[in-house]
Every structure is written in structure tokens, then in C-alpha cells.
């Protein structure tokens, strides 16, 4: 099994769990305003403006898409040209066998551009977000993949506010559950196994 390196086992987090994306968004804004450094947010669906609120920059993956598309175009052209002109020239419809039949290459170029862009984007996206096949995600709350949203603040990071102040802030922002020192658990194990493992390490 591959460990995901974003959440490490020995890290402790202050978490606020929300059941409303608007409250979560507002809470993130308030925490940021107070100078609290947020580790990450975990939501079961994309929350609009959350990336802006967390101060994330826009992804550059679109440039990758363009390059993949260019690669596809080039491949398509090379493929069609090398086959129809260089390797095995065939007379089709009385057309010449040189670059002047570029029109007939266009469908090939088009299709391969799409194919390369689509596959390239999937591969790039999974690579960039480290979603490798077979990975078992570390969760902070079991329902973060269902209907709850989590704000995670790394306890190791130095903050302007004390831990209890952050917790009360989260509560006042409408968190349904607040925890001062939560560890992640692995989804490959059941709740009981996680508990047993935790008790055994203590």
C-alpha cells in the first residue's frame, strides 16, 4: 500500500467539522483574517471560491493540456504523413501523394489532438494530485467523503491564536464538531481496527 504523504500519521490537527459549505467558506475567511494558517480543507464536493479563500493559485495544468494537444497534433501529422507519403504511398481518389493532400490529414490530426489532450489531462491530474491507483486515503472524519466538510489546522505550525481560541472561533462559526488534537486514520481499516491500533500504540 502506498502512503499518501500529505497527511502524516504522527501529525496532530485542530479540526472544525461543518455540514454547510457556506459556513465553511465563511469560517475560512474569518480564520484567514485572524491570521490563522490553515493546513487544508476537505470537502466531499467542490466548494465555490474555497480555493480563492484559501489563497491557492490557479493551476497551471491547462498549459500541460495545451502541450499534450500539440504533441497529439504533431503525432497525428507525422503518422499520416509518414504512412501516406513516405512509407506506403497510395493513390486514393486520384489524389497526389505529397503534402498537398493535407486536408485528408486533418481528421487524423484532430482526433489525435483530442485523444492526447484527454489522456494527458487525466494522467497529469492524477499525478499532480497524487491520486495513485490503490491508495488508501487518510481521513480526519469518516463523513468528509459524504456530507461533512473539514477545516484542518496543523498543530505543529505556530499560530497567532492559541489552540483554544481557534477552537472557540470554529464553534462560533457554526462547526458541528471541534477537536483540538485529531490524528488521521486510515480508510483501509475499520473504526474498530483503528481504535485497536491507537490503543496499542499508546
Amino acid at each position: 500500500m502506498i502512503d499518501k504523504s500529505i497527511l502524516l500519521d504522527d501529525k496532530k490537527f485542530t479540526v472544525g467539522i461543518f455540514d454547510d459549505s457556506d459556513k465553511l467558506l465563511h469560517a475560512v475567511g474569518t480564520l484567514k483574517k485572524k491570521g490563522v494558517k490553515i493546513f487544508d480543507c476537505y470537502t466531499p464536493f467542490p466548494v465555490h471560491h474555497l480555493d480563492k479563500a484559501l489563497g491557492y493559485e490557479r493551476t497551471n495544468i491547462t498549459i500541460g493540456a495545451f502541450l499534450c494537444g500539440m504533441l497529439g497534433s504533431l503525432t497525428g501529422f507525422t503518422l499520416a504523413y509518414s504512412m501516406n507519403v513516405v512509407d506506403w504511398p497510395m493513390i486514393i481518389g486520384g489524389k497526389p501523394q505529397d503534402i498537398s493532400v493535407f486536408t485528408s490529414f486533418i481528421p487524423v490530426i484532430f482526433e489525435l489532438t483530442i485523444l492526447f489532450t484527454a489522456f494527458g489531462m487525466v494522467i497529469l491530474f492524477f499525478a499532480r494530485s497524487r491520486m495513485i491507483h490503490g491508495i488508501k486515503e487518510d481521513l480526519l472524519s469518516r463523513r468528509q467523503t459524504d456530507d461533512h466538510m473539514v477545516i484542518a489546522i496543523d498543530n505543529a505550525e505556530s499560530q497567532d491564536l492559541s489552540n483554544s481560541e481557534i477552537q472557540s472561533l470554529l464553534t462560533s462559526e457554526g462547526a458541528i464538531e471541534v477537536d483540538g488534537a485529531r490524528e488521521s486514520f486510515n480508510t483501509s481499516l475499520t473504526d474498530e481496527e483503528n481504535l485497536v491500533q491507537k490503543l496499542m500504540t499508546q
Partner: peptide, 12 residues
């Protein structure tokens, strides 16, 4: 444009 051109070009 291509749809119009391609068919006319091919069929000749």
C-alpha cells in the same frame, strides 16, 4: 468550413 470543404475536396 472543414465539413464543407473536406467532402467537396474528397469527392472531387
Amino acid at each position: 468550413f472543414l465539413s464543407q470543404w473536406l467532402l467537396i475536396w474528397y469527392t472531387n
